[in-house]
């Protein structure tokens, strides 16, 4: 009799916790931590739930590009215990949940499920083990980078430079790996890569004031275009970076849509953030409503991508895209490259 009872208890315990199903009165609480306000990915995430009338309550905390706030936000989250934490960007994700090196298969948030998005390279950032599974019990996320081969293929469709320049920060391993990949593609596509590096200041950070002169050096070494594949530093300094490129009459190609949308890069091949946000929301739905374990979910990516072209930059450089690209691209108008002297 005792055995039967214990079996029933075990069976009952293993049943899905249908008692905690979310309702309009008791919605799933999602806490989203974003780097620079609720931009398109954040909007896409919200819209996904709105469109489907799913009972969720989304709270957004804006870090405002201030990493020092992250520790405090982490503590608040541990107390608050939301049903899901969503992190936006590499810095926020690392700051909130910590790396595998620090926490192994756990996170700084304990057993609170976490979903990251807009992380350029989650494996190299040590947030996840692989793209098939995060390797961490309560972590999953989405990818948003387009393969380099696809990016360069579209660049070459725009125009065919004999030399492509890159400027990397010595602190960023991602950038080095990306440049190595670019060189492999260069061998197949018959162009050369000119690779330069920033000097590191006393604070251990690259010197952003070097951007204009490095850009000139690229030009002097025969580069006909500049490519930013994976560099947080270049992304952060996108205004100066793109303005310097234009000053040297070098078209700037990037893997970051922001560099076209917010600065004067000529073209970017990237996923539209709104779609990345929707993809992340799909993962969130599976965790919250289908009771999927985050560790069981792969780090998914979109099968499609967008081409962004800055019409003003094209005009400034007098380097217009071919009609084939015009037909597929999203055009950005009205962003003038900021003048730096």
């Amino acid at each position: 009799m005792y055995k039967v009872l214990s079996l029933i208890i075990v069976l009952l315990a293993s049943l899905p916790t249908s008692g905690t199903a979310f309702t309009v009165e008791d919605p799933a609480r999602i806490h989203m931590v974003v780097w620079r306000g609720c931009e398109s990915a954040c909007e896409g995430f919200r819209r996904f739930f709105n469109d489907r009338d799913l009972p969720v309550k989304i709270t957004v905390t804006n870090v405002g590009k201030d990493k020092s706030k992250l520790i405090k936000i982490r503590e608040t989250l541990i107390v608050e215990r939301p049903d899901l934490v969503v992190t936006w960007g590499t810095s926020v994700s690392v700051g909130i949940i910590g790396t595998i090196k620090e926490f192994g298969s756990n996170t700084a948030l304990g057993d609170i499920p976490v979903l990251f998005m807009i992380v350029a390279d989650p494996v190299r950032s040590n947030i996840v083990e692989s793209y098939t599974s995060s390797g961490r019990d309560f972590v999953t996320g989405v990818r948003n980078r387009v393969p380099e081969k696809t990016q360069i293929g579209l660049l070459l469709q725009y125009f065919k430079p004999k030399k492509i320049g890159v400027i990397n920060s010595p602190n960023e391993d991602n950038s080095k790996i990306n440049t190595a990949r670019l060189k492999e593609i260069a061998a197949q596509e018959e162009f050369e890569v000119v690779s330069l590096e920033y000097n590191v200041g006393l604070d251990g950070k690259p010197k952003k004031e070097e951007i204009p002169e490095l850009m000139q050096q690229l030009r002097n070494e025969g580069a006909e275009a500049v490519y930013v594949g994976s560099s947080s530093f270049n992304l952060e300094n996108r205004d100066l970076f793109s303005a310097s490129a234009i000053m040297q009459r070098l078209p700037l190609f990037s893997a970051y849509a922001q560099m076209v949308q917010e600065s004067g890069a000529l073209m970017a091949v990237a996923n539209a953030y709104v779609n990345v946000g929707k993809l992340a929301a799909g993962q969130a739905q599976r965790i919250l409503f289908d009771r999927a374990n985050p560790i069981d979910l792969p780090i998914v990516s979109l099968s499609r991508f967008s081409v962004f072209i800055n019409a003003n930059t094209a005009k400034q450089l007098e380097l217009y895209p071919p009609i084939q690209l015009i037909n597929i691209a999203k055009f950005v108008f009205g962003i003038e490259a900021v003048e730096y002297n």
């Binding site: 019409a311 094209a314 007098e318 071919p322």
Partner: peptide, 14 residues
């Protein structure tokens, strides 16, 4: 999108 008629590229291929 701002491309002048005389500067259209890739038309033959298209």
């Amino acid at each position: 999108t701002g491309v002048p008629f005389s500067k259209l590229k890739g038309i033959d291929e298209f």
